[in-house]
Design a binder for these strands. Structure first.
Length: 275
DNA sequence: CACGAGACCTGTTCGC
DNA sequence: TGCGAACAGGTCTCGT
């Protein structure tokens, strides 16, 4: 479900709250429960409650697709993978059906990690870098210049789309936003990264930044995201639009598999040859 | 190093 | 209508 814009949206809501829920900065953990032990990647589930109880939330950050909840001593790193969701449950209410881990704060609110497919993971560590150090650069980092990005691409002899999805190469881009960015840049997902010209890489970086920024501005996408205000899914150019007209030229959108991932392109706008 | 296949999981949609 | 197959926003590991 979540890529960079969705995780960023979670971070903002948890940080500042919304009309429906309080922010969690400053709240103190009263208790916690791990309902699916594999959700907790580190440490062992038995040790988790003892570690976090009594700590309060100092800050909320994001790195790639990781949400980082900084406590007094430890940091909670949360990766939602395919179906993870974070919800604030008001005092006295039941947690959602597929809650795998929860934190109850002293004000009675519960932060529930809901994850039907059980792919999501939570780490509780003293030093976040032990988990995050392999991540590639942030695509929205202003330090990431077109020149640097071109060099990064030119060093790799890989298909463009799987490279964009590689979190060691670039952090935060997932299946939806890579399809959207490649279409916006007019690049075929199977183009070899080493063949991408300086102009093309500049266009791709701009396209990535544009689709991610728009995703954040629209509070994320993701199909069932409407209930928390996200509506980017209504603005997809190609993702999930197989057979529908390309917004640029009207050619029906084509579906193909690239590296085992569902991929959507306009065969007229995105050619294999260098433009 | 690059790539494909399989694994991890459950819920929803698709096709006959 | 019913039922099994296919598919889903992500990542890891293994074999070639």
């Amino acid at each position: 479900m979540p890529e960079l814009p969705e995780v960023e949206t979670f971070a903002r809501i948890l940080r500042t709250g919304s009309e429906e829920q309080p922010g969690i900065i400053g709240l103190s953990v009263e208790s916690s429960v791990v309902l699916w032990s594999k959700t907790l990647a580190q440490p062992a589930a038995d040790d988790f409650a003892r570690l976090v109880i009594g700590q309060s939330v100092d800050a909320i950050n994001r790195r790639g697709k990781f949400l980082i909840i900084q406590l007094d001593r430890h940091a909670l790193l949360i990766h939602l993978r395919m179906s993870g969701d974070l919800q604030m449950v008001p005092p006295g209410n039941d947690v959602p059906r597929h809650t795998r881990l929860l934190l109850k704060f002293t004000n009675g609110w519960i932060l529930a990690f809901n994850d039907p497919r059980k792919f999501g993971r939570v780490w509780c560590v003293l030093d976040p870098l032990t988990i995050l150090s392999d991540l590639g650069r942030e695509p929205l980092d202003s330090q990431l210049t077109p020149e640097i990005f071109h060099q990064m691409l030119h060093q790799r002899k890989r298909q463009l789309k799987p490279l964009l999805l590689d979190q060691k190469f670039l952090s935060g881009v997932g299946n939806i936003y890579s399809d959207e960015a490649l279409h916006l840049a007019g690049l075929h997902p199977l183009r070899n990264a080493i063949s991408i010209s300086s102009d093309e890489s500049r266009n791709l970086l701009t396209a990535l930044q544009n689709v991610l920024t728009e995703g954040i501005a629209r509070n994320g996408s993701s199909i069932d995201w409407v209930y928390r205000g996200g509506d980017f899914q209504n603005n997809f150019r190609v993702y999930g639009r197989t057979g529908k007209p390309c917004p640029v030229c009207g050619t029906p959108i084509t579906h193909l598999m690239v590296g085992q991932r569902s991929t959507h392109i306009c065969s007229a706008c995105q050619k294999m040859e260098e433009s």
